[in-house]
Design a protein around this nucleic acid. Structure first.
Length: 815
RNA sequence: GCGCGGGUGGUGGAAUUGGUAGACACGAGGGACUUAAAAUCCCUUGACCUAAACAGUCGUGCGGGUUCAAGUCCCGCCCCGCGCACCA
């Protein structure tokens, strides 16, 4: 008998698959299309780790299952190749990022081939290649034309170590996401994409997405829509007017003071003419620095500076003193807030600085209401709070009169309703070399002009020194920088910032549909066939990437380039495979498991893949186990052995309904489990199947075993494709297993002749009995009551009720 | 603080609409084969009680409840993980 040797069969089949280009997906087919892939990786120098392998074990299992069930499957692969690590490596070693990136890609590619991933390599893309970023730049110019790309002077997060601007989501706890150093604020001219224009459109589509709830919630919160109102108040002794936003305006007459953000652009004008204006501005500046370095403060450390100005109360009450407060944000709402006794921070702030407070909403309980009136605590419960003024709303529940209050405020001319979002526009410029150059030329006469399509790509020039010096390395490439204006032909300079890597990854799923197109980013009819992607698998990026792909696709939809607003159908979010010690795998902890070492140790890629899926549910974290993989290898070996034994055995004729029931039952279970991505239980079902086949084989093989053995090989294919291909061939098939039909089950044959029925007396199991599968209800009940142990517990009482759950149990109730 | 998950044997985890809790696997123990070991094959393995049981008791974070029947549903708690967090 041949031995199971992964190190022989795996390279054999990998070569066959590569030579045949077997997994190349045609752009048209009679079969339904199925587009699936994982989030393309950044090709780091460390190579693929077990986590990457995990993602591809999932994607490949799905791709292979879908192929077997008659789909035209596209499983493409690409590289998110622009980014800081390659550039930092270049700064350290002098190796051009283009060179080190290619090496890393070669390494990743080899690793993916070694696991037998059924990738359509003809669609491979690399974001740092000019034939790709040419179209990233093209998208930029289109966005610019549509008013979705713009430049503005802005105070931005700046990493002093990486010497680059960072997007909000690249700042974690006041530290740079890459190097971990403290970030600071710096004002500079930056490019933005106007994602806020699509806030509502994105929000509207979110609930219907077939995505994990937690990601949908995260995105909804990130967009952070709130409807509220805008007040306008005149500033006493000046011609100035301030605007403030309020989303919790129910107790609107409670406002007794105003706060403004310390970095608000309006602040200098506001304090102009106040005696100690300079001191105030200096203190405000200090407040900004302190806030930026210490991060957001807590309730307990609200701080303020009086501006010396007062706003005139629109409701005709006393003036509202205007304070600078550290908790007011310049870039949310209008940066100015009317404050009241019904907000915890405002309350805290007023108490600290002795500012007048006037509660106008109280609890129903009169004792509690008195406490609120006496400012013993801050009452914020809009849902249950009773308004005590103004007259028009006296005695009404604040929360349930929101709309009436808005109407009232608008009608009386006190305020206008509006909508605000937490989400800011997407800052995309980076003062970095290793990215796609922003395709803009600055001309003295014509201003910022985008590079015409015929002149794209704006190639990234080769440089000698990668060390950034406060601006992009590109700024020192004078020959590259100095150019002519495409509009007037006069001398002009190129934009030296490059685009955020997220720009490159925001459209790559579309490029996969038409990767070699040199006339367009993609042909709309290709996108029409392939998109939206049916399944997108990843374990990272709750908001950033997953919101940006949606944003871009919405724009492309408006441009008529894609068939649907949303780019991603089902999103599958997987957990991490952690180290055996339960910690995250990391080089510094020395607990990283190298997938190729596992393969080379003799377990093979099939065992590695199967084991990763067997560890637990894919959406949860699990821990690597070196013992566990041995168990899975044992299972695959048993699949191999029983198939060999079957092929070599002398086979008689014979019927075995138990065997057939087993086969059909397992096909049903495995198919359903794969459909719901419950791979661990699908594999467990296959293990159970093999264990049962081992028991049945003790009474000899017959010709009737052919179908059960073939089903086993077919079902094992998505997990252990090399083993399955080899066995399929040995079983005498010429065809390609990947495209053979998935085994189907016949419901009628999933049930054996006899079934086990449990008998409960007062909810406790007292007996089990074997009955014919087609036994009548009455006969089962009768047999159940006749059981000795059942009789023992019934005693001389009479059953008050006998319940029969078909095929499962009989429940006897005795009182 | 807000949001989303989750607490089941020594371990990872099953139990799809309430219907035999612990599938499958690891680990552990025993046996077969072998000069021996590895590999392989077979058996046992929630706790308690028991000489043993296909006899019984308990058992899915804690306390109540609904039901013939609850890991699953309801009410009230405790704990853990993750994400977001000065958004007026």
């Amino acid at each position: 008998m041949k031995r199971f040797t992964p190190s022989e069969i795996e390279p054999k089949w990998q070569k066959i698959w590569a030579d045949d280009e077997r997994y190349r997906a045609p752009d048209e087919s009679d079969k339904p299309k199925y587009y699936v892939t994982g989030m393309f990786p950044y090709p780091s120098g460390a190579g693929m780790h077990t986590g990457h392998f995990f993602e591809h074990s999932i994607v490949d299992a799905v791709a292979r299952y879908k192929r077997a069930t008659g789909h035209n499957v596209m499983y493409p692969m690409g590289w998110d190749a622009f980014g800081l690590p390659a550039e930092n490596y270049a700064i350290k070693t002098g190796t051009a990022p283009a060179v080190s990136t290619e090496q890393n890609i070669a390494n990743f590619t080899n690793q993916l081939q070694r696991v037998g991933a059924s990738i359509d390599w003809s669609r491979e893309i690399t974001t740092s290649h000019p034939d790709y970023y040419r179209w990233t730049q093209w998208v930029f110019t289109k966005f610019y034309e549509r008013g979705l790309a713009y430049q503005k002077e802005a105070s931005q997060w700046w990493c002093p170590v990486d010497k680059t601007v960072l997007a909000n989501e690249q700042v974690e706890d006041g530290k740079c996401w890459r190097c971990g150093s403290e970030v600071e604020k710096k004002s500079m001219k930056q490019w933005f994409f106007k994602i806020t224009d699509y806030a509502d459109a994105l929000l509207e589509e979110t609930p219907a997405l077939n995505w994990p709830e937690k990601i949908k919630t995260a995105q909804t919160n990130w967009i952070g829509k709130s409807d509220g109102i805008i007040y306008k108040n005149k500033v006493r002794d000046t011609d100035l007017e301030i605007e403030s936003f309020s989303a919790h305006f129910e107790a609107f007459t409670a406002n007794t003071f105003v706060v403004i953000a310390p970095d608000h652009p309006f602040l200098p004008a506001l304090v102009d003419g106040v005696d100690n204006a300079d001191e105030i501005l200096a203190a405000a500046k200090e407040m900004v620095i302190k806030r930026d370095s210490e991060g957001p403060g807590s309730l307990a450390n609200v701080e303020g500076i009086f501006t010396g100005r007062n706003a005139i109360d629109i409701f005709g009450d006393e003036d509202l003193p205007i304070w600078i407060a550290n908790y007011a944000l310049a870039d949310y709402g209008t940066g100015i807030v009317l404050c009241s006794a019904h907000d915890e921070r405002d309350f805290e702030f007023a108490q600290k600085y002795g500012i007048r407070l006037k509660p106008t909403m109280v609890p129903i309980d009169p004792i509690e209401a008195e406490k609120v009136k006496n400012l013993e605590y801050c009452f914020t419960d809009m849902a249950d709070g009773v308004l005590i003024e103004p007259k028009a709303f006296e005695g009404k529940i604040a929360g349930s009169h929101r709309q009436e209050i808005v109407k009232y405020l608008e009608h009386e001319g006190y305020a206008t309703s509006t909508i605000k979002y937490k989400m800011r526009d997407w800052l995309i410029s980076r003062q970095r070399y290793w990215g796609a150059p922003i395709p803009v030329i600055h001309c003295e006469k014509d201003g910022a002009v985008t590079v015409p399509e015929k002149d794209l790509p704006v190639l990234l020039p080769e440089v000698e020194d990668y060390e950034p010096k406060g601006e992009s390395v590109l700024a020192s490439q004078h020959e590259w920088v100095n150019t002519t204006c495409p509009t007037c032909g006069g001398p002009a300079k190129r934009e030296t910032d490059t685009m955020d890597g997220y720009a490159c990854s925001s459209w790559y799923l579309l490029r996969y549909t038409d990767p070699q197109n040199d006339q367009a980013a993609w042909a709309p009819e290709k996108a029409k066939y392939w998109t939206p992607i049916d399944m997108y698998v990843g374990g990272d990026h709750a908001v950033a990437h997953l919101l940006y792909v949606r944003f871009w696709n919405h724009v492309f939809y408006d441009m008529g380039l894609v068939p649907t607003k949303e780019p991603v159908g089902q999103l599958v979010y997987h957990g991490l495979i952690q180290a055996e010690d339960g910690r995250k795998m990391s080089k510094s902890l020395g607990n990283v498991v190298d997938p190729l070492e596992v393969i080379d140790a003799g377990y093979g890629a099939d065992a590695l893949r199967t084991f990763e899926l067997f560890l637990g549910p894919i959406n949860e974290n699990s821990n690597w186990s070196s013992k566990g993989i041995a168990g899975v290898h044992r299972f695959l070996n048993r699949v191999w052995t029983i198939t060999q034994e079957y092929m070599e055995a002398e086979k008689g004729d014979g019927e075995n309904t138990e065997l057939t029931a087993l086969q059909h039952k397992t096909i049903k279970k495995v198919t359903r489990d794969i459909e719901r991505l419950s791979f661990n239980t699908a594999i467990a079902a296959l293990m159970e199947y093999v264990n049962d086949l081992y028991k049945l084989k003790t009474s000899g093989f017959s010709n009737e075993w052919q179908a059960p053995i073939e089903s086993l090989v077919q079902m094992v294919q998505p997990f252990a494709p090399h083993l399955a291909a080899e066995l399929w061939q040995q079983l005498g098939h010429d065809g390609q297993l990947d495209f053979e039909a998935w085994p189907t089950w016949d419901e009628a044959r999933t049930v054996a002749d006899t079934i086990t029925v449990v008998v409960q007396v007062n909810g406790k199991v007292r007996a089990k009995l074997e009955v014919a599968a087609d036994a009548s209800e009455d006969s089962v009940k009768e047999a159940a009551l006749a059981e000795e142990n059942v009789q023992k517990f019934i005693g001389d009482k009479k059953p008050t009720k006998v319940i029969y759950v078909p095929g499962r149990l009989v429940s006897v109730v005795v009182k």
